[in-house]
Design a protein around this nucleic acid. Sequence first.
DNA 1: CTGTTAGCGCGTTCAA
DNA 2: TTGAACGCGCTAACAG
Lengths: 343, 343
Amino acid sequence: MATVSRVLAGQDNVAPETRERVEAVVARLGFRPNAAARALARRVAPTVGVITPDITTPFFASVMHGIEAGAAAAGLLPILISAARDARREVEAVHVLSRQLVTGILFLSAKVTAEHDEAFRSAGRPVVLVATSDPEGRWPAVEIDNRTAMADATRHLLALGHRAIAFIGGPPDDPAAAWPRQLGYRDAMREAGVPVDPGLVLAGDFGMASGQLCARKLLRRRSRPTAIVTASDEMAVGVLNAAWEAGIAVPAELSVVGFDDNMLATAVRPRLTTVAQPLYEMGRLGVAQLLEPPGASKCLPARVVVRESTREVMPSSQHSGPRDSVVDGGRESRFQGPEGILP
Amino acid sequence: MATVSRVLAGQDNVAPETRERVEAVVARLGFRPNAAARALARRVAPTVGVITPDITTPFFASVMHGIEAGAAAAGLLPILISAARDARREVEAVHVLSRQLVTGILFLSAKVTAEHDEAFRSAGRPVVLVATSDPEGRWPAVEIDNRTAMADATRHLLALGHRAIAFIGGPPDDPAAAWPRQLGYRDAMREAGVPVDPGLVLAGDFGMASGQLCARKLLRRRSRPTAIVTASDEMAVGVLNAAWEAGIAVPAELSVVGFDDNMLATAVRPRLTTVAQPLYEMGRLGVAQLLEPPGASKCLPARVVVRESTREVMPSSQHSGPRDSVVDGGRESRFQGPEGILP
DNA sequence: CTGTTAGCGCGTTCAA
DNA sequence: TTGAACGCGCTAACAG
């Protein structure tokens, strides 16, 4: 009994001959150790809990893909809980997962409240924030430097001569992604000596519809912006569609920048210039960090990928037909962003 | 001890007063039952295993969303295994999950081989196929009638006067989705007395790039098709982009039909006419079916959603500029498809 | 309706 | 290096 346990657990204090004998029998009987019994005895199950606000976005899909890969590499199984952006459900999810004796918990939602903090502590297992962060620094995170990334995106537009640059950000209650991105936008504008028109700063919810609504407002203005940076590719696509409705050509009359670099960015025409986040890597490293001794947060590099939705600002205001303005399809260059380190 | 167990399990053979007393103590102590111990004793864990070929598609996201909801409603936790379209890994996943004592297994991949069948049997727990099926009918499935759905989509084009209708299907080794959809296409063509030109029937892999490649071939033909039906929205978007490259206006010069009705369908311009699959429902019902006594397969209704990517076939071959051809944005009508029953 | 008892299958001592 | 015995925390059958 005990010897079999040792063999299955891969311990080395077993005679080679005995080991072989056990392995032979295990193979012959098709013996499969009972995970519940093992978890009960070890007090840990070979699972990772994943708490996510929204399971339907390409953003989540990429992160989850990485988590799956990282978990598989570590012999762990991901358990998914979608909390639908409800803090109470998120906290409850932590409890559910700790009952399951998960090896660790990956948290993907935007905000770590005091309740979250307490739940994380009481879970008694490692918690890592993935593609999000805790401004208070209580829990380790794997993310990018959102502020710098958005500043880079804005600088790209400034370098193209744009000055009337609007910003469509995330919801005001999202300190992890929405806040730093807006700060990055303001950083770049200040740095370039361009005052920010408060009317050009709007908040969306990362969804396509919100981007479209915000863009409609912006494009109706007397002096409309020549460029719009957004905090998600979905919102950028919404902007594209609002421009289409209004008969405004992208990028000839309006430059648009997305964020994430998900499938939408290359699905639409013109393809989106956007900030590429290494979401897959973030998921994978999140799992890895769960298994390491409690370390510091990791900050991964993001970069601006220039495609066809941005262009030099128009010298005159001569409006050409929308479709005429499309540049040839092949262009795609890379613009290396800095690899900032989290505080 | 046993009484506490009864209270926590929600059994009714406990005196109300005793129950309250137990609940009070449980609340006061913040007692959390150990899931592993419970699973060990019950021989079943409160989890559902999900085996999927690809975790990054909008298709999967929708199904998973439904699974998550169905599982949550049943007090189950989804465990995810991505098998990357590898049959061996899928079979291994079944074993891994049965070790975990999962309540049941949801299988989302395209093909059930003899090896799968044996693994499913040896798992000793219910298996339900979601958004896929077993042509041999060995395992219950929750899906749509792919053949009829694709026939409806093709009929929509025929009704618009199209005759040169190309078909971009799924991979040849996908009996669950690719085969019946191609059959449906052929059904509708035959029914309309239009012979199928073999050169107009291509196989993609459901991805955007494959749709684009196939479309390039089709659009280079001397007599190019006036319409293209595809087996996925991704491929339809690929077609849209190939048309854009070639300067062919959609829908003025080419009608395009997708399949699934995922986020891409309404993200692109023109918005896609497509076959809407109730993917969320399929996921939800898949979980439900796991808990019921082994029943028959369920077939859910699909419908053709008409948007802007399809239009009456052009009477003349006068090519207008691409953008000029766009219809006003608001149009969106519904076309009720039949609710076929699986054999 | 409640308490007692005997496992569920594996880890982990501790002797041998 | 191996085996025997106990315990992980809970459920289920039984007796009371």
